[in-house]
Each structure stands twice: as structure tokens, then as C-alpha cells.
Simulated assay, not measured.
Amino acid sequence: MSRLVIVGGGMAGLAAAYHARRAAPGLEIGLLEAAGRLGGKVSTVAEEGFVLEGGPDAVVRYKPWALALMKELGLEGQVVGTLPARPSALIHDGERALPIPAGLQMVVPGDLRALALTPLLSPFGKARAVLDLLLPKGPPGDEPFGAFIQRRLGRQVWERLAAPLSGGIYGGDPYSLSTLAAFPQLKALEREHGSLVRGALKQRGQRGSREAGQLFASLEGGLGQWVRALEQGLSGVAL
């Protein structure tokens, strides 16, 4: 009999085991996890009426796979939007904690008025960001994320916006991230619109906004419910 061994019981390992079990009911599957619990970085604690996420607290709506899996697991009725406090996020410039510009599309300015008013960038940094509208397309292949953003939007946008925000999502050095792996949508904006800013302006409103609570989604009671639902779908999987 064929066997499948999945190393790691985080969300990727759980999802792989779940889909493998559904695709091949007779397959012998083993899931190896060194920690005492499954779910990896996803961990929810509910105590005294409060829900605390120990890791990620939401998924993005414009990537459909997470929401599709929640629906398949019967969690669709528990999906909720997230409405962050205002300001929703702050970046420290060395002296002050300043709000991120409104209308930001991932890390790309999608509101020129908000870009003009933000104190995070100098007048030169703002002008350099808008120059993206005039620059030619770059090479179609992959490149370090820091090099990509600096090429399109300039060093200030990278250091004061993109690096802090992307560094808060991914571990390690944000400059060295693969752009195609971490932010393929931004390479698509450059390819389709010739400019990140132009693409962000055209997409503004299509994906919803962070400020309106339309960009992210979570589950009532926290993402830990997602882990428990996946565990229940692993009938016959050796843990």
C-alpha cells in the first residue's frame, strides 16, 4: 500500500493532509509534528470574554483559497470581516509613531491625496513614488522584493512603508523576499498597467479597503476554529 508522510502540522501540513485524505480515502497518511499541538503559528486563546490570537488574526479576501477551505469545512457562517481601529496601523519613523497612508494597496499608495499628506515621506520621497507612473516596465522575472520596490517607488517608500509592513508579515529580511513568491500581485500590476501606482489606483475599491474592514476576514471565536475543523477532517490520519 502506498504511504504519504507529511512533515509539519502547521496550516500547510494540515491542509495537505486534509486534501490528501479527501483525494485518496484509502491512502495511508501520517502527519508528523514536533510540537504538542497542531496549527503551527495559528493559535487562539479565549478567556473572560476576550479572544486573543497568538499568531495571524485574519486572512486576506483577495486570495480565495483560505475562504474556500473554510467554506468546505462548514465554517462559512462564522466568517466575519475585521474592522481595525483608526488609525489601523502605525509606523515609527525614529521619533514618532505615524499612521500608514489611507488607501494603501498592500504596500503601494492607492490614494494620491493620502500620499501627499502623509508625514512618513519627505516631499522628495513622495515625488519619487509618483515617478513610478512614468517609469518603463522592468524585467518579467523574479527579483528581491526590496530591489523591486526601490526600482518602482524609490528608497523612502521601501524604508518607511514597504519594509516595515512586509517585515511584519514575513519573518527574516524583507529585502530578500522573492517578489513572485510573496507579492506576485505587484509584479502583475507592473506587467498589466506599467506602473504600481496606476494599477493600485485602478484597483482601488475593487478589493475593498482595510479601513472599511473589507480586506481581511477572520472567524468568530478566532482562527483556532479553523485548526480544529481541519483536525476533525483528518479521520484515519496517523498523528
Rank of each mutant, 00 (worst) to 15 (best):
A16S: 00
A23R: 13
A23D: 13
I29Y: 03
G30S: 13
L32I: 15
A34Y: 05
A34W: 11
L38G: 08
K41A: 15
V42P: 05
E47I: 12
G49V: 03
F50C: 14
P56M: 05
D57K: 10
V60Y: 01
P64M: 06
L69W: 04
L69A: 03
K71H: 14
E72C: 02
L73D: 06
Q78E: 15
Q78P: 08
V80C: 11
T82E: 12
T82Q: 11
H92A: 07
H92S: 04
D93I: 00
P99R: 09
A102I: 02
A102R: 14
Q105W: 14
V107P: 05
L115A: 08
A116P: 06
L120I: 04
L121Q: 05
R128P: 06
D132T: 07
P136H: 13
G141T: 07
G146I: 01
A147I: 01
L153Y: 11
G168E: 12
G172N: 13
G172I: 04
Y175A: 13
S176Q: 11
L186H: 06
L189G: 11
L189R: 10
L196S: 00
R198C: 11
G205I: 07
R207W: 15
S209T: 14
R210E: 05
R210H: 05
E211S: 10
E211L: 00
L215E: 13
F216M: 00
G221R: 08
G224M: 02
G224H: 01
W226G: 06
L230C: 10
L230S: 08
E231G: 06
S235A: 15
